[in-house]
Design a protein around this nucleic acid. Sequence first.
DNA 1: GCTTAGCACTCTCGGCACGAGAGTGCTAAG
DNA 2: CTTAGCACTCTCGTGCCGAGAGTGCTAAGC
Lengths: 343, 343
Amino acid sequence: MTLDPRKQKVLRAVTVDYIYSAEPVASQTIARKYNLGVSPATIRNDMADLETEGYLRQPHTSAGRIPSDKGYRFYVDVLMEPEEVPEATARQVRTALQSQTGGLEVAFRQALRFLSLLTEYTAIVFAPHLKGRQVKNLHLVPLDSRNVVVMLVTDPGFVQSRVVELASPLVEGAAEALSRALTQLLRGTTVGCAGRSLREDLEEVVSDPALRRQLLEMLGAGEEGAAGGGMQAEGATNLFKHPEFRDVERIREFLSLLEGKATLVELLAKIANAGGVTVRIGGENHSADLYPYSLVLAPLACQGRPVGTVGVIGPTRMVYSRSISTVQLVAECLADLLERFGR
Amino acid sequence: MTLDPRKQKVLRAVTVDYIYSAEPVASQTIARKYNLGVSPATIRNDMADLETEGYLRQPHTSAGRIPSDKGYRFYVDVLMEPEEVPEATARQVRTALQSQTGGLEVAFRQALRFLSLLTEYTAIVFAPHLKGRQVKNLHLVPLDSRNVVVMLVTDPGFVQSRVVELASPLVEGAAEALSRALTQLLRGTTVGCAGRSLREDLEEVVSDPALRRQLLEMLGAGEEGAAGGGMQAEGATNLFKHPEFRDVERIREFLSLLEGKATLVELLAKIANAGGVTVRIGGENHSADLYPYSLVLAPLACQGRPVGTVGVIGPTRMVYSRSISTVQLVAECLADLLERFGR
DNA sequence: GCTTAGCACTCTCGGCACGAGAGTGCTAAG
DNA sequence: CTTAGCACTCTCGTGCCGAGAGTGCTAAGC
């Protein structure tokens, strides 16, 4: 069931040509541009075979061929020649991200900008969510007698803070004592798993009801924190440069895909547990919404545990080689960053 | 130079009809639907006059009329009947926003969601920027011996925090002493106006170079903080429901307007100092990028000082009456919130 | 048996003409 | 000043046509 060598060459030629031209590829074009040493007629026969085997599609009779999802998959797995990110560019990205002092959120945003700039697709990140992270530290910082900042630090160095208006004023020194007690109580607790016992323990330690409610909320359902529990995207407009987005309906679909998030988050969450760069092509996503898109995604881990996913989304007609190396680069930089913060 | 009463009625009819139908309005349509008691021919004459006076435009000969910017302006200032937000909806918005405990960022985001939902346009907020705010409090919270969270609290209760890796370990108790010293030094300082003297003072108080750099950065150029120093938008896809966005070029323009931000931020910053709801129609914005859009904007203030702007952006063919009342409602809720945090 | 030249066939796409429909502007009468 | 009537203009949808692109098939060649 393997493809004979010439058919592989034809499939590669069709794929590469279509990726760059966005036009169905004709047998003659291949004969002219990629010298396989055979005539258009022969190529035509191979293309017909490749179509019956499911690697190519024809938009309509008497048009050239374009790769099917299966064709892209074979291309990515077997035929594609890897493309390195130019060393100069790579260095630039690395230094920019490593010298980042503005905290993880800012670094993530910058990573997205790089990704969308270098690939010309839309960069997405499923930011490390607080849910599932362990509490490292909890601090109360009094602003004045009635207001206090609650600061929750979780595992890889995410800081989430909120201002609480207390029901009754704090006495001098109470904040520090409470901070110590709470940190001791909560250290190691997993955010999002606020069990009954925790609730009872809190009632003992914290007398102020407003503060207690706020703490429970922060430790609770894993809401979007400052680090962005949800998904972020950058460069949505990039996609509109590509001819598959000539019509408005497609644009609307794509934007509501990004805004709706649910479909994407589900996929990104799954990938967070994968190893290495994953390529998902069109229908492989088993979701009608994602059918016209391909994604190149890399998991993010901190001390061996998965914390999120980063990558790009674009049309199935994607420059996979470049996307893969770029995503890899950016993911590595972010991994370094996560280790640095995660100590 | 004032318009005679019947012409006003005609102008109102054309505007209202066009706002809802998005089709050029014919004299006969007006005669049929808005009974002004005159024949289409008379209305035609009035429309011709209104056109020479600049209130109406004709997309091409033998099409109906549509309002010009000047026409919309007259409609908004004189002809429009105010439309209240239904009490039930208003109550819902108020309670949802007032019971918000997740800090200003979350509340702002929710406000945007309401706005975009209720108006069907794109909601934007120029979030209170730290630049220009006064420092209220500065705290250092040690995480372990080498890492410390720097937390900067500015005037209306914005919290900005970053993790710093110190050049040399902290001794016990040093963090608290430093926090006190820094708060005393910095209280009342305006963020973004880090003068030379401040820099010298910091050198005396803070010996750690990494920490010093971080502090200067946070106090410095007024970068985007956690509260979002820049602009946020919600519901960009809303606009694509409207027929003026049938073609891809317009969509791309709009999205890059939102992503580019500069043009909008400039306008929003100006409005931040205004009083009450401001309506900007098309060309009134004196910016080619904004020419096809109208904005309904309200300033946000805290203790009498301007801190930002909130509103919606949509096509000039906008349901102004509804937009105005909705923006007003949301702005009031946010003002309450700002007062609560600003104590 | 694989490759290839030749040719008929199919499908898309741009251009053009045409007619219907919508709406105006003008004129002249009420 | 208002209005009926009518000619005029412009858009838009439709159908037609021809050019061009590309294939599939057949039969001949190696």
